[in-house]
Computed example of a mutant assay.
Amino acid sequence: MSDAIEQYLIKNEPYYHPVADEVTLYEAAYSARIPMMLKGPTGCGKTRFVEFMAWKLKKPLITVACNEDMTASDLVGRFLLDAQGTRWQDGPLTTAARYGAICYLDEVVEARQDTTVVIHPVTDSRRILPLEKKGELINAHPDFQLVISYNPGYQSLMKDLKQSTKQRFGALDFNYPDHDTETEIVSHESGIDKAISTKLVSIAERARNLKGHGLDEGISTRMLIYAGNLIAKGVEAHAACRVALVRPITDDPDMRDALDAAVATFF
């Protein structure tokens, strides 16, 4: 394996708790080299799932955090100037396609639509990536796969994927795990006992019922792990929940009071 790609191999198994048949379905999609789209709320485990699957399949994983300033050149590459003159630098998508990695575009709808169009030829039957500035046509490595993720709750007419993009992908829906599974995940990841973990999960479940009724987004599994980390470090539970669960998701005084009351119910 090339040194350019070996650094992206995940050496240690990431902790991932399957919640349905997503592992089996993804393995089948990878074997067929179908590009995949992971849809679900923030902090519910999409990125961890991709890391776990890359480790399980023993494939390098190149992750790109998409943003509105990202250009096509940021994905495919550009010419750079150095002491020896001009040289070409592959972008992450090109590196993955050239050497056979999984390329993961996280929160892809944050990128401009004119940027995401560059993935079209490499996500259909052609599996090619034209480098127009360089005059090179890359035939994607047999091991290459593209994975994208986004949060459907944030999509709008101005910030959504084109149908011509969506229909190039298979899709897996993600959501927060059921109570017992989430309790196990929070306990494992933060090191707190399950009695405290189940209280944190119960607080999150109450908060998620407020989504659309004053909250734009519920308390995520990631936030529960943060709260658990603080408690494991000796922080008092009320303070840990205030810092990790309540204050990050709302500035509304009434909503903060309601969430603080939920915390007080369990702690």
Rank of each mutant, 00 (worst) to 15 (best):
S2P: 04
A4M: 15
I5L: 10
Q7R: 14
Q7Y: 11
Q7T: 12
I10G: 02
P14G: 08
Y15E: 07
H17F: 10
P18F: 14
D21S: 14
D21F: 11
T24V: 08
Y26R: 11
Y30K: 09
Y30G: 01
Y30C: 05
S31A: 12
M36C: 11
M37A: 15
P41E: 01
G45P: 02
T47V: 10
E51R: 13
M53D: 02
A54R: 03
P60T: 08
L61I: 04
V64I: 15
M70T: 11
S73R: 15
D74N: 15
D74F: 11
V76P: 01
R78L: 06
F79H: 12
L80D: 07
L80F: 06
D82R: 08
A83G: 11
Q84V: 06
R87Y: 13
W88K: 09
D90K: 08
D90Q: 10
G91F: 09
P92C: 06
L93E: 01
A96I: 00
G100Q: 02
C103P: 01
L105V: 07
L105Y: 03
D106A: 10
E110F: 08
E110K: 08
A111T: 04
T115L: 02
V117C: 03
I119N: 00
H120A: 12
P121G: 09
D124C: 03
S125V: 09
I128Q: 10
P130H: 09
L131H: 08
E132T: 14
G135N: 07
G135F: 12
E136G: 07
N139Y: 14
P142C: 10
P142I: 05
F144V: 00
Q145T: 02
Y150T: 03
N151D: 06
Q155I: 13
S156I: 15
L157Y: 15
L161F: 14
L161G: 09
T165P: 01
Q167S: 09
R168P: 09
A171R: 12
F174K: 07
N175D: 14
Y176M: 13
Y176A: 08
D178M: 14
H179I: 10
E182N: 04
S187E: 00
H188Q: 04
E189A: 06
S190Y: 05
S190A: 07
I192T: 02
I192Y: 00
K194P: 00
I196C: 00
I196Q: 00
I196T: 02
S197N: 04
S197Q: 05
K199F: 09
L200D: 00
L200F: 11
S202Q: 15
I203W: 10
R206A: 14
R206W: 14
A207H: 10
G214F: 10
E217Q: 15
G218V: 10
I219V: 12
S220M: 12
R222Y: 06
I225M: 08
Y226Q: 01
N229A: 07
L230T: 00
L230I: 06
A232V: 05
A232E: 05
A237C: 13
A240S: 11
V243W: 00
A244C: 09
A244N: 04
P248Q: 06
T250D: 03
D260L: 07
A262V: 06
A262R: 01
A264I: 07
F267E: 01
